[in-house]
């Protein structure tokens, strides 16, 4: 699921395991609660330990982009593993300039 840390104005959400429609609402709730508390200038989504993801994960990223923009912060997506490259490319998320 997700481990969340806050340090120096940055919320880092380290995702792990499988991201699908069943689990996404819980991840979304945890990340949004932390961001509302901390009002970070940056939200980092770390995909390094994610083994599986479908389009529910893309919806999760797009939703966090909207949420953090409303709070006045920036989104960064890091450590996308090779097995998820295909779905990230298809999603067009690169055009949002969030992929690091």
């Amino acid at each position: 699921m997700v481990n969340i840390t806050y340090k120096n104005g940055v919320v880092t959400a380290s995702l792990y395991g499988e991201i699908d429609h069943h689990i996404a609402p819980q991840i979304r709730g945890d990340i949004d609660a932390q961001c509302e508390r901390s009002r970070p200038s940056r939200l980092v989504l770390d995909f390094g330990k994610v083994g599986f993801m479908d389009s529910s994960g893309i919806g999760l990223v797009m939703g966090r982009y909207r949420m953090i923009s409303l709070l006045g912060g920036k989104l960064e997506v890091v450590n996308v593993p090779p097995n998820l490259q295909k779905i990230f490319v298809l999603s067009g998320l690169e055009n949002l300039g969030v992929m690091k």
């Binding site: 996404a24 979304r28 479908d54 389009s55 529910s56 893309i58 919806g59 999760l60 797009m62 939703g63 779905i87 298809l90 999603s91």
Partner: peptide
Amino acid sequence: ERAGLGFAV
């Protein structure tokens, strides 16, 4: 929060 990408995938 659905992307509308299921069929595309």
